[in-house]
Nucleic acid binder design. Structure first.
Lengths: 235, 235
DNA sequence: CGTTATATTGAAGTGCGTCAAAAAGTGTGG
DNA sequence: CCACACTTTTTGACGCACTTCAATATAACG
C-alpha cells in the first residue's frame, strides 16, 4: 500500500525493513473519494494526515473576487497534509482532481512515531520540506516565468515526480486536469492556457490532450522552462 | 539571544524552561554579516542552520534570463535555513538585505535534539511548515492578486510578523529594501512597483519611503490585499 | 439526442513591462 | 563644506503578454 511513499522517501534516505513496517502501521484503512471531492477544508481541525495512494489531488486558495490559485499538485505516494500534523489545521483546501484512493495516518500514531523514531521523524520532516521547495519553485514560475515557461516547468516537474513512483515509464503520463485547472496552477486564464498549449503542441515540444501529457522533445521543454531539478531533491 | 525565536515558537506551542535552555544550547556564537552578503549559496552542502537575530534577509531564485524571484523575507527570530537540516543543501540563495546578526545551530546539535526531545522536534518541524504556508500565500499573491494587492499583502504579513517579535509596536516598521527588491518579491518591475507605491501613498493607505513602512489605514490595506492572517498561524 | 462541460478561436482592452530620461538621494574624497 | 560619482526613485511614452468578452466547436454524458 505504501510502496510509492517508500519510493519517495528512499529517493533521499535509507529506510530499513523495521522502519518500513513502522511506517506501514501508521495507516489505517484506505478509502475512495470521487473526483472534485474536497478532502480537507481550510481551517478544519485535523486529527489525521492523509496519504494519496491513487489519483491526483491539488491544494488551493481563493480570493474574494473569485480568483483561485492552485499551490500544489499531488501524485500517488504524496502526503496531502502531513504539515497538518504540526499545524493542527490547514490554510488551504485539499481537493481531488480525479477519483482517488487515500489512506489515513491518525495524528496519535504520528505523535507516537515522533516519540519512538527520531530517524523516521526526520525523514517525514524532510518530506514536508520538499513540499516547501516545490512551493518556492512555483513562486519562481508565477513571479518570473512567461506563461509558456510556467506550463513547461509544471510538466517537467510532474514527469520527474511521476517517473519516481512508476507512473511515467516513458516520457508521457496521465494528468486529469482541465485547462482551467492547469491555468489555476500557472496563474493564467483558461483562454491563455489553451493558446500556450497550442504553441507547445505545434512546436512539437509537448502534447497535452485527453488528460494525457506526451513529451515529444524533453530538451526543448526543459529549455523553455529553464528547468533545473535540484529543487525536487531526488538526487 | 533567542528571545525572538521563542516569541515565534510560543505563538503556537508551550515551551518549558528546560526546553528553552535546550534550544539556547543549540547555538554557538553569533556573527555580523554585511548588507548584500550571500549567507547560504544554493547547492552548497550544509553543516549548520542559521538563526536571524537582527536585520533582514531574503531567499531568492534566479532564471537564466536574469529574472530573479524573492521567495521569502526573513525577520529577526526566523530560522533562515532550518529546512537545510533535513534537505542537506538548499535550492535557493539566502542573502542579507541589511547588515544582520546571525547565530549558528550545528546540524550535529539539531540531530541530537531530534534524538532527545520529540516535542522540540515537532516544534521546529512546525516552524518549517509555517515557512511553507507563507510560500503558499505568496503563490496566491503572484498568481492571483493585482500588483497593488501583492504589495499590500506583503505589508500586512510583515506587520504581523514584526509585531510578534516586538519590531512594529505601532502600525509602522523599518524595512530595508529597495523598490527593485520589493518588486522581486511581488513579481513586478521596479517601475511598476514605484507606481503602485505611489497610488497606495496618495490614497492614504500606506507610506513606504526611507526604508520605512507606515500604515495609515490598516483596514483599507487589508481590503486591498484581501488579507486573511490564518496562514501565519499566529493564533 | 439534447444538455452540459471543456476547448478553441477571434477581437478588443488593460495591467504591467520596456526603454529612456530626469530627479532625488547617498556616499566618498578633497 | 562642496564636487563628484553612483544608486534609487520618479515620470513619460510606448509596446506587449495576457485578460476579457463572446462566439463557435468539440467532446462527454445521461
Amino acid at each position: 500500500m505504501i510502496e510509492r511513499l517508500l519510493l519517495n522517501l528512499r529517493a533521499r534516505d535509507k529506510i530499513s525493513a523495521e522502519e518500513e513496517s513502522a511506517l506501514q502501521s501508521l495507516f489505517e484503512g484506505s478509502t475512495e473519494v470521487g473526483s472534485k471531492t474536497t478532502i480537507v477544508r481550510r481551517g478544519d481541525p485535523l486529527q489525521r494526515s492523509i496519504l494519496l495512494l491513487e489519483g491526483f489531488v491539488y491544494r488551493s486558495k481563493d480570493l474574494d473576487d473569485g480568483r483561485r490559485q492552485i499551490s500544489a499538485i499531488h501524485v500517488p505516494g504524496d502526503f496531502l497534509d502531513l504539515h497538518g500534523f504540526t499545524l493542527k489545521c490547514l490554510d488551504h483546501d485539499v481537493v481531488a482532481l480525479s477519483a482517488a484512493r487515500i489512506a489515513f495516518a491518525p495524528h496519535a500514531r504520528l505523535h507516537h512515531l515522533t516519540e519512538t523514531s527520531p530517524h523516521l521523524t526526520r525523514v517525514l520532516w524532510s518530506l514536508t520540506n520538499r513540499d516547501a521547495a516545490r512551493h518556492r519553485e512555483w513562486e519562481l514560475s508565477l513571479g518570473a516565468r512567461s506563461g509558456k515557461g510556467r506550463i513547461a516547468s509544471l510538466f517537467c516537474e510532474l514527469l520527474l515526480r511521476l517517473r519516481l513512483v512508476g507512473l511515467a515509464p516513458d516520457d508521457a503520463f496521465d494528468l486529469p486536469v482541465s485547462q482551467t485547472e492547469l491555468g489555476e496552477c500557472a496563474g493564467l486564464t483558461n483562454v491563455h492556457t489553451s493558446r500556450m498549449l497550442k504553441e507547445l503542441r505545434c512546436e512539437g515540444v509537448v502534447d497535452f490532450s485527453d488528460n494525457r501529457v506526451v513529451i515529444r522533445d524533453w530538451n526543448a521543454l526543459q529549455r523553455i522552462a529553464d528547468f533545473d531539478p535540484l529543487y525536487l531533491y531526488l538526487d
